[in-house]
Write a protein that binds this DNA or RNA. Structure first.
Lengths: 135, 135
DNA sequence: TAATATTACGTATTACGTAAAGATT
DNA sequence: AATCTTTACGTAATACGTAATATTA
């Protein structure tokens, strides 16, 4: 299993529609359909009820969806963590954050950052009230 | 970025050695070296100090490691969740769990499971005292 | 018949392995 | 010199797109 499978699954699950999910992901339907099937084969349970003309989440699929989202978020968090720690070399940095980061990731990131770059000023900006600025 | 990159990174970071990590992952060194470099390119910061003859985690790499592990664990949790919900159709099931699952995943899994399979008996087994049974 | 999912198949990307080179202790 | 990482390059796996088929509303 690769992140591609999770990304594809989330898109299809959210739209309940391979056609539109494919457009959103900028791929064509057949490979997307195939990747979803491969994912189901690997997980071992059906995530969708596959009908000839439509597609709906199964109970297992509904349970899988938030977990898959969380896993993808975790990956993004990991990358952000590395970037925050790796690029802080001096001066001042501005860190915009969303609530999901603030809860758990940010404190640890700041801890690492402060240890590796004790002289760097950190200014935090809560972007949760400016969600329209995020794509 | 794909899960492969995270799996490879964790192995290399743990062993601080591409040669042995490659053996553990059953791949050869050159592709492994390349995948690590691709990961660093995508993250945008160096995760290792690459010397001609050795390799050591950078500060960013040290910060990235536990996050990458957590992300991989999240993926495994997602799959387990789907399997638990998807295969519970009746009778009785035995669920062995490790502490990491018990904290957050298990209660939600049981909630989903109970909603979808109200007649199924669930027996829990704490395997944390039998760690030698896990590979 | 219009809209959707899947199957069939050829193509293109890319991860891989082998061989060789470079570098450090 | 021995060990380890990296570069070069051909191969193989596989994700992708196009075209065609199947199914339902």
């Amino acid at each position: 299993m690769e992140l591609r499978h999770l990304r594809y699954f989330v898109a299809v699950a959210e739209l309940q529609n391979i056609h539109r999910a494919a457009a959103k992901l900028h791929v064509s339907q057949p490979p997307l359909s195939r990747q979803i099937r491969d994912l189901e084969d690997e997980v071992g349970v059906a995530l969708f009820e596959h009908k000839a003309n439509s597609l709906r989440l199964t109970e297992a699929g509904r349970a899988f969806l938030p977990e898959a989202r969380a896993a993808l978020q975790r990956v993004d968090d990991a990358v952000q963590m590395a970037r925050i720690v790796g690029t802080g070399q001096g001066g001042e940095i501005h860190v915009g954050y969303a609530p999901s980061l603030a809860a758990e990731l940010l404190p640890r990131a700041l801890k690492y950052f402060d240890e590796s770059s004790p002289g760097v000023r950190v200014r935090l900006h809560d972007l949760s009230t400016q969600a329209h600025l995020l794509q």
